[in-house]
Structures are given as C-alpha cells and as structure tokens.
C-alpha cells in the first residue's frame, strides 16, 4: 500500500496504450493515467523544442483532431515536474487519388438516382 501512495509514482503520468499511434484521418483519442492535474504538450520533434500546451486540467482523455500529415510528439507534465514517456502520433492521410475516385463514383451514382426520380416524377 505504501507503494501506491509513493510520491514518485504519483508524479509520473502515463499514456494508455503503446508508444506510437497511427491514424489515417488525422484524429485520435488520447487517454492517460495520472493522480492529479496535467499539462498535455504537443511538439513536432523529439526534443519538444516547439512544444505548446494543448490541454491543462484534471481530465484523463483528450480528443485530438485536424492534424495534417506528419509525426507528432506528445507528453504529459505534472505541476511538480513529473513527465510521462513521450507518445508519437503518426498521421498519414488516405490516398487523395483514391478518395477522388470514390467521390467521382458516388457523384455519378447520386446524379443518376436524382435523374431517375425527377424524370419519373415529371413523366407522371
């Protein structure tokens, strides 16, 4: 029981899951364990040279979205200086050419449906 209340453990927040998260839509739900308030920092390099705080508070999750292609580093920091191991979020959006092909197919099918209904209604 003494270990559970140890100040060292209490000061070290941890992300849930593995050290790397991959997403094809630029979004992911971050969840973590911590005993107190944390600051969630986002940076583009391992040194966190351009880190910015994207959340500060006592919640245990944060929904990250709208990220462009790239690798992002995140870490949690507590008020007394505890820092979590960093988490890498790797964003690789789906193929744009495939997306545009599917849009073209969807648009074609939709236009034919609209045409069939409107022509049928007109000829009634």
């Amino acid at each position: 029981m003494a270990l559970v209340t140890s100040p060292v453990l209490a000061a070290t927040p941890q992300f849930d899951g593995g050290p790397t998260v991959s997403t094809e839509a630029g979004n992911t739900l971050l969840a973590w364990q911590s005993d107190g308030p944390v600051r969630l920092e986002l940076a583009s390099d391992d040194a966190f040279s351009d880190a910015r705080v994207i959340y500060a508070g006592s919640a245990h999750s944060y929904f990250l979205s709208g990220l462009a292609d790239g690798d992002y580093r995140l870490r949690l920091r507590t008020q007394d200086g505890g820092t979590s191991p960093s988490l890498t979020v790797s964003v690789r959006h789906q193929s744009l050419s495939r997306a545009l092909w599917l849009v073209a197919i969807g648009a074609f099918v939709t236009l034919l449906v609209i045409g069939a209904v409107l022509r049928g209604a007109r000829d009634e």
Binding site: H93, R98, A99, L102, V103, G106
Partner: peptide
C-alpha cells in the same frame, strides 16, 4: 481525403 469520401457515402 477521409472527409470527401464521407460525403457521398453518407448521402447514399
């Protein structure tokens, strides 16, 4: 990409 693919899928 994910957003534009959702347009016609959702519509249909």
């Amino acid at each position: 990409p994910a957003a534009i693919m959702a347009i016609f899928n959702n519509l249909l």
